[in-house]
Simulated scan of single mutants.
Amino acid sequence: MTGLIESRLAAIGINLPTPAAPAANYVPYVVSRGMLYISGQIPVGQQGLEFVGAVGDAFGIDDGRAAAKLCAINILAQARAALGDLDRVARVVKLVGFVQSAPGFTDQPKVVNGASDFFVEVFGDKGRHARSAVGVSGLPFGVAVEVEAIFEID
């Protein structure tokens, strides 16, 4: 039987991908004391790496939001791998979003809303979370956005 969260994802047309393997010396997630910590996820889609470049230069806010949403989809793929069932997520506790920003770009919160809005759409009120949105000069593989997450789990 498909769980509630998997059903919501299907209803909005989201099929979670196979989680990406780590690109360096770290693990993709850690479960500890009722919490699930997901390492930073980048915008890897069906065709591979997407959204390479800086927001405010190569991409506008809408593209940045799409990149952040893709990161959030990859976060859920890692969460499903860690938990087996996304219905075990009791709450999205915190997101940290990093936005590769062109000089003078200051709308990082609008970009990271792509991930935040997605989690609220999928989890409802349990998807509301604390958050940081940080502008940086570069990210791994040159991507526009990277997002990490912390979940409370049952």
Rank of each mutant, 00 (worst) to 15 (best):
P109S: 07
A68Y: 09
A58T: 12
I150R: 01
A54K: 15
V92T: 00
A72E: 08
L49E: 13
S32Q: 15
Y37R: 13
V30K: 15
D87G: 07
P22F: 10
Q47Y: 11
Q100T: 13
F141I: 05
A102V: 04
Q78I: 05
V145R: 07
E152K: 01
D85P: 02
Y37M: 07
G45T: 09
Q108V: 12
P19C: 07
D107P: 01
G97S: 06
C71F: 08
Y29L: 01
A90N: 07
Q47M: 05
A24L: 05
V31L: 14
A82N: 07
T106P: 03
S132N: 13
P43L: 05
I42C: 04
G34T: 10
P140M: 02
G104R: 08
G40H: 08
I150T: 10
P22L: 10
C71H: 09
R8T: 15
A20E: 14
V122L: 04
V147R: 00
M35P: 01
P19N: 10
P43K: 07
L16S: 09
V99C: 06
G97I: 03
P140L: 03
L95K: 00
G48H: 08
E121F: 01
E50Y: 06
S39L: 06
F151V: 01
A20Q: 15
V136D: 07
V92K: 00
F151A: 00
I42T: 10
V99I: 13
A11D: 15
P17Q: 11
F98E: 15
K110D: 13
M35I: 02
V112H: 09
V93H: 02
D87H: 07
A68V: 06
N15F: 08
L9F: 12
R65M: 14
L16P: 15
K110P: 15
A115Q: 02
G124E: 05
G124A: 07
I75Q: 03
M35R: 14
I12N: 05
